[in-house]
């Protein structure tokens, strides 16, 4: 008999069927899409899928398990940094093309339900400011941090590369802010839902923000625990 409670703790393995993995944790579906798996999920295992879609199986398992379980963490030295930055870039694209437009559309619905209220106006302002900061953060990562992976032998140490290396540690504090601000927004919305209002729109916003927060936390784990330490190790002596 299927027991989601206990299976959720179990690691995802190469011979697990993809549909079974998604049945255990449907939040992994957008992660699977980012690997280019979007059809024929049927009965095939993760190993078969990785062969069919030319995906590095170890990396696929490392990513799925990291998103699946907060306690799991892959062997950091075995992760290919090129694959990792490619995956993180796709996560940024998902954020820009799916999550942020969805939040924008939910805010529009809130504005229709509660037009010109202080709550709506200030929430929209907060969210817009937050998204602006998040876009700046993404640009910072893609401009300064990810390109370092292509130079990981450290042979070219031009001034731009040195600038990028010096900015590495800044990532930690930025991630902390990104996660905290979205968590704060959830708390504040919960505390200020007006009486006698359509609760569904607030539920949709909170649900989306909650998923968004979880994804941001997992995304930051890859960067803070794998990418940045590995890059610091590679370039550390060049400071």
């Amino acid at each position: 008999m299927r027991d989601p409670g206990s299976k959720k703790q179990a690691l995802i393995e190469a011979d697990d069927q993809l549909c079974d993995v998604l049945g255990r944790n449907i939040d992994l579906l957008p992660i699977v899409y980012r690997f280019g798996i979007s059809s024929n999920m049927g009965q095939s295992t993760l190993e078969e899928n990785s062969l069919n879609h030319k995906i590095d199986l170890d990396f696929l398992l490392a990513v799925l398990n990291t998103y699946h379980s907060g306690n799991y963490f892959p062997n950091t030295d075995s992760i290919d940094l090129g694959l990792l930055t490619d995956f993180l870039t796709k996560t940024h694209q998902h954020l820009k093309q799916v999550t942020i437009p969805l939040l924008g559309s939910l805010m529009q619905s809130l504005k229709i339900k509660l037009p010109d209220t202080k709550l709506t106006i200030t929430l929209e302002q907060y969210l817009n400011d937050y998204i602006t900061r998040l876009m700046d953060h993404i640009e910072f990562e893609e401009k300064y941090i990810f390109p370092l992976v292509g130079l990981r032998n450290g042979n070219r140490m031009g001034s731009e590369v040195k600038t990028s290396i010096s900015k590495l540690k800044k990532l930690f504090s930025q991630h902390n802010n990104v996660e905290t601000e979205i968590s704060d927004l959830i708390m504040i919305i919960l505390q200020h839902i007006p009486e006698n209002t359509d609760i569904q729109i607030f539920h949709d916003i909170l649900h989306t923000l909650s998923h968004f927060e979880k994804e941001q936390v997992d995304h930051a784990r890859f960067e803070d625990k794998i990418l940045v330490p590995r890059l610091l190790k590679l370039f550390g002596s060049k400071f």
């Binding site: 200030t122 905290t180 505390q191």
Partner: peptide
């Protein structure tokens, strides 16, 4: 008390 940590979150709370 508020469950809010960031300065931007505290500002939002104060405005509301």
């Amino acid at each position: 008390k508020l469950g809010v940590k960031s300065i931007s979150g505290l500002t939002l709370y104060a405005v509301l």
